[in-house]
Design a protein around this nucleic acid. Structure first.
Length: 496
RNA sequence: GGGCCGGUAGCUCAGUGGUAGAGCACCUGACUUUUAAUCAGGGUGUCCGGGGUCCGAAUCCCCGCCGGCUCACCA
């Protein structure tokens, strides 16, 4: 801590000692408040028209600003519901109490009792008859006018960000609303919410590198899940016809404005449904959520407006790539011919191996950024989708779609592969990718899952949605760090 | 991981080689309806860290740490 900050804290510690010496407990146990700031204001507004007198109220919160004027003072007090002003006069609370008031600082918590009135300037205010210190603060809050701007500090000390920047709090309230709304919508549709293991023997269900941890008693490495898919499908096999999980998954990849190493997904699986059913569900869910969170089917996205009203346009992956890059990947049946075609449009990816990865590259480079309005891309090459069922008329493609909006992928879904013989073959193909092309993200074979499928799995439509990105879309935030309360940052400690 | 930009008071920022600054916050005093209260006075600092150049470095050079943007990879 710097010398200067220490002296500020020292001042506050001295005030604290002074308060204690006058018999004040700076950290009392509880406070009986009668109203939140918002409730108190509402109470006053309701009674205002009718006349008559109101009983006194007790409110509590953090002192945000104060204006002392000799023998009277105004304090702005903020609680979780909002802000209310307190008015303190020597002749109302007495000399002794008024002296104590002067020992309070911005940042302290207080409880204030008094009657509600409106000041000359029109602000609803508690005229204090008494107050009590609820908690003394020792560190100064960020400045009231400019707030807290330093991005690093905002993320590392999110509590200060929440205190200083009200719009940050509203972003996370929107997130909470979205998640609870999603849960309610799924419950209403008869989906059962479940929880599956985060610590796993092997991390499957997606292409990504996992985090490794170690179990001491078992003396073996375990992986943090990269998806909930394979366990949820086991539950479909076990007889849950509609299941979902909203949960954290972990991927050991780079960190940037779209990626946090831990993020939240919603995956759902519905027996007897296919990807067409799921597509309809996605557009219905997202547009209802927009209605619930934004109060409209439309949302601002930078300079643009995104309209979530269903139905969303549906275009095959092949046509989309053809449209935005000019390349028809059907004309390039193997990796080298596709690589050549891509080189002709100056898209080189020397680090990528395999035709599937190259198609994915075309998608992310040329198509994805164009898809601002909600759009479904369908029918992906089988080599990109080892867990999806093939198209009946074209075994090179699978019944898979991804939903895009705001230039980001927000959902990924398919008719689930339920043919155990084909699934085993696909795992083997993935193992070959891993071995021959060094693709560390290739799907790992999960024999236990295969065995489950061999007992018989009904036709199933599965879905994965990125909750963080949905929140970004709904709150018009361009960085995932703005929708994750405590995003991952490098350690500030210099020790290795 | 690469490139670019940034790190100065508690907060927000100015300061391109010559005595470290402003506003807010804080401290002292005045003020009984203020609200970015006002008025008078007070600057409280590891200029991110470590080296180097120079008579002299917040400023120039090198190395490192942290962050932002961007590219690569991923969702």
């Amino acid at each position: 801590m710097t010398a200067r900050l220490e002296s500020l804290t020292q001042q506050r510690l001295e005030k604290l000692a002074k308060l204690r010496s006058r018999g004040v407990d700076p950290y009392p146990r509880r406070y009986q408040r009668s109203h939140t700031a918002q409730q108190a204001a509402a109470l006053f507004q309701e009674s205002e028209g009718k006349g008559g007198s109101l009983p006194p109220v007790s409110v509590a919160g953090r002192i945000m600003t104060h204006r002392f004027m000799g023998k009277a003072a105004f304090l702005d007090i903020r609680d979780g519901s909002g802000k209310i002003q307190g008015y303190f006069r020597v002749d109302q609370i007495g000399e002794a109490k008024y002296e104590l008031l002067k020992e309070l600082d911005i940042g302290d918590f207080v409880g204030v009792t008094g009657s509600l009135f409106r000041t000359h300037t029109g602000e609803i205010t508690v005229k204090a008859t008494d107050f009590v210190l609820l908690s003394k603060s020792l560190l100064p809050l960020p400045e009231k006018w400019h707030g807290l701007v330093d991005v690093e500090k905002r993320y590392r000390q999110r509590y200060l960000d929440l205190i200083a920047n009200p719009e940050v709090k509203s972003t996370f309230l929107a997130r909470s609303k979205l998640v609870s709304g999603l849960r309610r919508l799924l419950d209403e549709r008869g989906f059962v919410e479940v929880e599956t293991p985060i610590l796993q023997d092997m991390a499957g269900g997606a292409s990504a590198r996992p985090f490794i941890t170690h179990h001491l008693a078992l003396d073996r490495d375990l992986y943090l899940r990269i998806a909930t898919e394979l366990h949820l499908k086991r539950l479909i096999i076990g007889g849950f016809d509609k299941v979902y999980e909203i949960g954290r998954v972990f991927r050991n990849e780079g960190i940037d404005f779209k990626h946090n190493p831990e993020f939240t997904t919603m995956e759902s699986y519905e027996a007897y449904a296919d990807y067409n059913d799921v597509m309809q569900m996605v557009e219905t869910l997202v547009s209802s959520l927009a209605q619930q969170v934004l109060g409209s089917h439309q949302g601002k996205w930078g300079e643009q407006t995104i309209d979530f009203t269903p139905p969303w346009p549906r275009i095959t992956l092949r046509d989309a790539i053809k449209k935005y890059s000019g390349i028809d990947f059907e004309d390039c049946p193997d990796e080298s011919s596709l690589r050549e075609a891509m080189a002709r449009i100056n898209l080189v990816a020397p680090d990528l191996r395999g035709r599937g990865k190259l198609i994915d590259k075309l998608l992310s480079a040329h198509v994805e950024p164009q898809l601002v309005q909600p759009t479904f891309l369908l029918d992906y090459p089988v080599e990109m989708s080892p867990l999806a069922k093939r198209k009946p008329d074209d075994p090179r493609l699978v019944e898979r779609f991804e939903a895009f909006a705001g230039g980001m992928e927000i959902a990924n879904a398919f008719t689930e592969l339920n043919d155990p013989v084909d699934q085993r073959q696909r795992f083997e193909d993935q193992a070959r990718l891993r071995k021959e092309l060094g693709d560390e993200e290739a799907e790992v074979a999960d024999d236990d899952f295969l065995e489950a499928m061999e007992y018989g799995m009904p036709p199933t439509g599965g879905l994965g949605m990125g909750i963080d990105r949905l929140v970004m879309l709904f709150t018009n935030q361009s960085s995932i760090r703005e929708v994750v309360l405590f995003p991952q940052l490098k350690s500030r400690n210099k020790e290795e």
